[in-house]
Design a protein around this nucleic acid. Structure first.
Lengths: 192, 192, 192, 192
DNA sequence: TGGTAATCGAGACGGTACGTCCCGTCTTAAG
DNA sequence: CTTAAGACGGGACGTACCGTCTCGATTACCA
């Protein structure tokens, strides 16, 4: 019914830019990704990138969201451990096959010098993860697996921190042993 | 008896460079720290920086080690929880008053595109942390507080990941509540 | 009887564009005058400018003609010296109060690299000036002030060159002394 | 004995840049000469151009001076008419075989919007020409060909203006007829 | 008098060049 | 012989305009 605000060509260009940005980040890492090359690869003028994203950071926040959508919902497997394991499997898949990890690391690095970026990152990364893990925990409470969780945000951060540490500083995959250990630690910490 | 290999002026210059690098990183972040400015601020020619450190990364690995020495030993407080709390207090202090966090984040970002940097980072950051937490856990085993730990490296990473997540993405301090929560979670995970 | 081909809005827009172009050239010079700004200032879409003038050069040829009409006739003062002085006074006035000089200089510069522009410039600038000076000389011949002039075009160019040299490289005005000197030189060169 | 102020590599780069600038202006005209292309053609980084010349204008003032040296002296042919003719021959040669004319036109255009450039141009173009023509006139006075000249600057400007008008707006050569006419007009104007 | 085609403003688009910053290498002159 | 100073070739930055294009929203003419 309503006419779309964004014009066709704009949408086309935007998609091409985000795709190109992901591809370049995949090949050269976050730091090595030059706007100049992204634009060239997207078949777009540099100005067109700057028209829609004021900085490289802003661009890659959007790229990250495209790779790891903010509104993802945790699969209900019927048990807390199963849900957490499913979450880990999905994360593993995304960080293995996309530059999501490299991008996140780059954004976190920049956030250290710019509070605005830090805020934005909490918005697109921390808060959504807390939402997802919080859902999983609530389901477990409802199921009677665990008592009410005093600080679900903390539990989520514990979980996310371990995953981050592994993916960005250890092996790039979350293997069986790691998954079992982390699920176990989280489950214990909430009194399962 | 023997004269040191490194000449006085060299040592002086090296220290000046490391200090200047830390100062610039403090002000402008890791990404914003230019070798050019570091050299100028150290009162040294750019070439002198390149003589000892082939890349910005190598330089900042040394800066990081200077801020968070690799061979630090955990204080023995007489209990697992006490030791962990002491560890947290020391980390909080370092990441609050130095650019250690910003530098670490920058190095981790670069490590995503360069396995050699990743290796180096495991060497100066992951391994030492595992050593320290491992020592704490061993002491607790000896004390009889906990049973032998199957995978102390994983426990250390869980601990480090949570600290990292908090310091680089949340508040820059590790307050009382956070410390209590993390100590508790780690202690439970090892069956305390 | 017939409705004019050019619609009202069109004519209005064209005038607004020429005015805006003159104004911008006045403020920023020929080189600094951007089509983009001219269009904006005329309250017109950029495309509307390009609809009527293929290039900046073509636009400014029209602007120049508007400031210094091609069909101007020399005032008959009753003597050669008087006519020439009147010519000088009119030129001085136009180059002092309009961007005609800056525009002419810009066009001449572009003509050096493009023979088509050079031709156009001879058409709107050189030829009309020769016509005017030629008229003045003929009148003087008729009056019996001077013998027939062998090469009136050359005399005109001598006159115009001196004026140009003064206006674009010296003072922007043609003062009394200069006028007397030039009128005298020209008069002598034709045997007055 | 004294060490030269300008270092060899600098001198080498500077010469390459000036040569390249002249070549590009020859091919594309003043307006079409991009610093980017000049640098590339000189095998030099763009920054190296900007290190020595703040603007395109400053660069081309130097290019012009290289093509038409400021300190040139008029050949003494033994007569006023001969000296003027020699001057014209030399100018014709320079404007025909070098981009001097295109460069001068470009600089004059820019001078209309920037008094500093106008000053500089009077310094490197108007004043030297007045000096040269002044010398020629003085010699004629000494020879007894002409009475003392009241305003030699004006005579020079008359001469230069005519030459300019011809070279930049008419034919690019100063043929026999034109030379005879101009020499004659100038000679008459000073009472030869 | 209401429909329709031309014209308009707005401004996105692919490009090119701008002038700046910093990279890592190099050359020079002083101590 | 080492150093500081800084020039150098290079490459990306973010900006300004170029001239072309697409979009809706007026016009203004014709049915």
């Amino acid at each position: 019914m309503t006419t779309p605000t964004v014009r066709p060509r704009t949408a086309r260009a935007a998609a091409a830019i985000l795709d190109a940005a992901a591809a370049v980040a995949q090949e050269r890492g976050y730091g090595g990704a030059a706007i100049e090359e992204i634009a060239a690869r997207a078949g777009v003028a540099k100005q067109t990138v700057y028209r829609w994203w004021p900085t490289k950071t802003a661009l890659f926040v959007d790229v990250y969201e495209r790779l790891v959508p903010r509104d993802a919902v945790a699969r209900n497997t019927g048990s807390l451990r199963g849900d957490l394991a499913a979450l880990l499997a999905r994360l593993s898949e995304r960080y293995t096959h996309t530059p999501a990890g490299a991008i996140l690391a780059g954004l976190v690095a920049e956030a250290q010098a710019d509070p605005a970026i830090a805020d934005r990152l909490r918005e697109v990364y921390v808060a959504p993860r807390r939402g997802i893990v919080g859902t999983v925990l609530e389901r477990a409470v409802v199921r009677g697996e665990i008592p009410p969780v005093a600080d679900p945000g903390f539990v989520s951060d514990l979980f996310s921190g371990a995953v981050w540490f592994r993916l960005l500083l250890g092996e790039r995959r979350l293997d069986e042993a790691f998954a079992r250990g982390l699920v176990d630690a989280v489950a214990r910490s909430v009194g399962a």
